[in-house]
Each structure stands twice: as structure tokens, then as C-alpha cells.
């Protein structure tokens, strides 16, 4: 169908539950880390997934990467259903999707030098020609601005600064020319200035290769610089999806609003005022609250509704979805 020409990836009711066993074998429920997530991603589009620690962002990333096999729902990539992938298609898929994992310090093997680290994925994916390997390694390093290339080829990860390590991780993720990049907290461990440098780099790469990007972060303030759309995740569910501008300037979901209120821009007045944020803790993913998962912390919760029935996605304005009963159409 013509309207799907540009669709890169889609997830429908995606679910990733981890079984929990007591004493190692007695089934004792499940951690519902991803629980009914649906979204679409177009070619060349950057979408950010934001949410609190433990809400399931990394699990979503690993499920999209086929590291976990989803316990429910489906993923399609370039029109093909992942469940039906042959092992050959799976190898193709792994080449098409680059991954920048959370924690750059754990991501790089300490005993390999830069050259080895970048050569490895080429070998694994059947780039045998030495000449071509060398060219692609050098191009990769140039692309992430680890230049002059000769200075870096022989270095080991511990000889690189945090920002340089992260650039190397990115070079490795894009060396096979993927169509989609999944970047899990690519900048959150870095100093502000280095963070800007890396975001700038990612944006250039994204433009140059018309790359789809799924940018996972808990840092809402960088999202404006890096994404077309935002999806806000709470306790395994997407609670709001919208273009960046619409979401940041006029958020709908009470959780999104609370998040935005919690972020301090550096203003001296902050020290003289208290921040209006809900107390309480993110809920357990084994026994999530009934109805809307945010209702125990929500100041607008409607008694008799929010704790009973899970809200569907309402569309208060074009291209803006929110899972909150406050937006139900009368």
C-alpha cells in the first residue's frame, strides 16, 4: 500500500513479560516490563522514548532488537513480520538495525583496540575483503570525528575519554550502514558539553543516511534537539505520543506534566521555590495498579473510573495521543 511506503518499523501491542520464579522454579508472576506498546517509525524519523528509571525503556529497545523474544504483540520491519523471519532474514535484520547500548563503559571489550572493535562486526557480517574492511573502519572513525584516524586505531578503550568511547560505540553501531539506530541513553553519562557534541554528531549521521532513530532517554531537555516525536513511557506503557513541540509546550498526560515540572532550567529562582511534584514511587511492574497505572500518584484521578478501567488512547489534537481519562470524548 502506497501510504506505507515510508514506514520503517511498527510495533503493535508489544509485550515483554519476564517470568519470576520463587526458589528458582515455582512460578510467581511476571515483571511486565513492556506491556502493550504500539507505535510506528518512518524512514529518517527520530523518535524519543522518555520515562523514569525502570519503566521498561531498555527492555523495549532489546525487544525491538530481537534480543528478547516478545511474549505478545508483533513487530514489523520494512513491511516484514519479525515473527516469520527465517534465520537469514534475522541476520539481515541485525545488520539493518544498529544499537548503542546503555552504559558506554561496559559496552566496549577492554582487551580489543579500536581497529579490532570496528573490524569485528564487519567480519561477523561477511565483509571479507581486507581493503574494504580498512576503508569502512576509517570512514566510520571519520564519521564520528575520531580524527586523525591513525591516532586512534591502536588505542584501547581505557585510553579514550568518556565522550570518545561513546563516539566509538556509535561508529560500531553504524558501520554496517543500518536503516535504524536504537540508541539507549547515548549521552546521559556525559558532561553537558560532550553531550552536545555527541548529539550534534548523531544528528549529522541521521541526516546523512536518512536514518530512523529510536532515542531512549530519561533526559527530556535534550529531546528537543534530537527528535521529531516523543513517546512517554510509564510502568511498561506508552502514556503519551506526540510531536516534540506539541508535547513539550502543551503536554496532556498528568505524568508528562509532572515530569516537565520536575526539570529545573538553570534559574536562580529555583533555590527559593519548592517544585510541585507528586510524591510516591514508580509502581511495581509485577503488581501494577489497576486501571490507569499512574492513578495512585495523580492529582486529577477521577474516583470510580481511573482506578477501575485502563484508559485507551484518546486523540485530543491531530497527531497527539494520550492514555488518560481526562481526555475522553464526551
Amino acid at each position: 500500500m502506497a501510504e506505507h511506503n515510508n514506514r520503517l518499523m511498527a510495533a503493535r501491542d508489544l509485550q515483554m513479560w519476564f517470568p519470576v520464579r520463587r526458589w528458582g522454579f515455582i512460578p510467581a508472576g511476571a515483571v511486565r516490563a513492556v506491556d502493550g506498546v504500539s507505535f510506528e517509525l518512518r524512514r529518517g524519523e527520530a523518535v524519543a522514548v522518555v520515562g523514569e528509571s525502570g519503566c521498561g525503556k531498555s527492555t523495549l529497545a532489546r525487544t525491538l532488537l530481537a534480543i528478547h523474544t516478545p511474549t505478545g504483540g508483533r513487530i514489523t520491519f520494512e513491511g516484514r513480520d519479525m515473527e516469520q523471519f527465517t534465520s537469514r532474514e534475522m541476520r539481515w535484520y541485525r545488520r539493518r538495525v544498529g544499537y548503542v547500548q546503555q552504559d558506554p563503559y561496559g559496552a566496549l571489550p577492554p582487551f580489543m583496540n579500536v581497529h579490532r572493535i570496528l573490524r569485528e562486526p564487519l567480519i561477523v557480517n561477511g565483509v571479507r575483503d581486507r581493503q574494504e574492511q580498512e576503508e569502512r573502519i576509517r570512514d566510520g572513525l571519520r564519521e564520528v570525528r575520531l580524527v586523525p584516524v591513525e591516532d586512534f586505531l591502536d588505542k584501547f578503550p581505557h585510553m579514550l575519554s568518556g565522550g570518545q568511547q561513546q563516539r566509538l560505540v556509535i561508529a560500531r553501531a553504524i558501520i554496517l550502514n543500518p536503516g535504524l539506530l536504537i540508541a539507549d541513553e547515548p549521552v546521559s553519562m556525559l558532561d553537558a558539553s560532550v553531550r552536545v557534541e555527541i548529539l550534534k554528531l548523531l544528528r549529522r549521521i541521521q541526516d546523512a543516511h536518512n536514518l530512523g532513530v529510536c532515542y531512549i532517554t530519561h533526559d527530556l531537555s535534550t529531546v528537543r534537539y534530537f527528535s521529531h516525536r516523543i513517546m512517554v513511557m510509564y510502568a511498561g506503557k506508552l502514556v503519551e505520543k506526540a510531536p516534540v513541540g506539541g508535547l513539550l509546550d502543551d503536554p496532556c498526560h498528568p505524568y508528562t506534566r509532572a515530569l516537565l515540572r520536575a526539570i529545573p532550567d538553570p534559574e536562580p529562582e529555583n533555590a527559593r521555590t519548592y517544585r510541585p511534584v507528586p510524591g510516591g514511587e514508580p509502581p511495581s511492574l509485577m503488581n501494577p495498579p489497576s486501571g490507569c497505572r499512574f492513578h495512585p500518584r495523580c492529582e486529577y484521578a477521577i474516583a470510580g473510573l481511573c482506578e477501575v478501567e485502563e484508559p485507551p488512547h484518546f486523540v485530543p489534537r491531530a497527531d497527539h495521543e494520550v492514555a488518560c481519562w481526562l481526555f475522553r470524548e464526551e
Partner: peptide, 14 residues
Amino acid sequence: AVEPMDDTPPPEDA
């Protein structure tokens, strides 16, 4: 400087 992104997504049709 790195400017904020224009948030119009790529068009649905290639």
C-alpha cells in the same frame, strides 16, 4: 550552535 530540531517528521510518502 546546535539548533532545536524542526519537528515536522519526514513525509508519509517517499
